[in-house]
Amino acid sequence: MVSFLALVIGILFGVAVWAIRHGNTLRIVIGLSILSNTVNLMLIAVGFKGEIAPIIGLEGAPADPLVQALILTAIVIGFGVTAFALVLSYALIKEEGSTEVDAFRRLRG
């Protein structure tokens, strides 16, 4: 199960990096969203010590409940940030008249 998770995490991470490297504003936002969910999956893998719910009285090795609380928090934060990123990229696309980041040339770094 853990090696299956590792495989999924690897593939998703690759997809996220590919999408972010692409120069399209919306694709970057989608890539970032996938990236934050990949990290959440990684946290699940950290807490995956057994398949039993962590309730006193159940037999067997329980899954770690703390990481699940962490993931809930991280999902909420990721949702908020993604919503803001979408609104910002919409405003940016309307302002610049292009969806490609190569067209945004006002900043020099």
Partner: peptide
């Protein structure tokens, strides 16, 4: 536009 670009980069 400058403001939006900088914020997008930071984000």
């Amino acid at each position: 536009a400058e403001k939006l670009e900088a914020t997008f980069k930071y984000l």
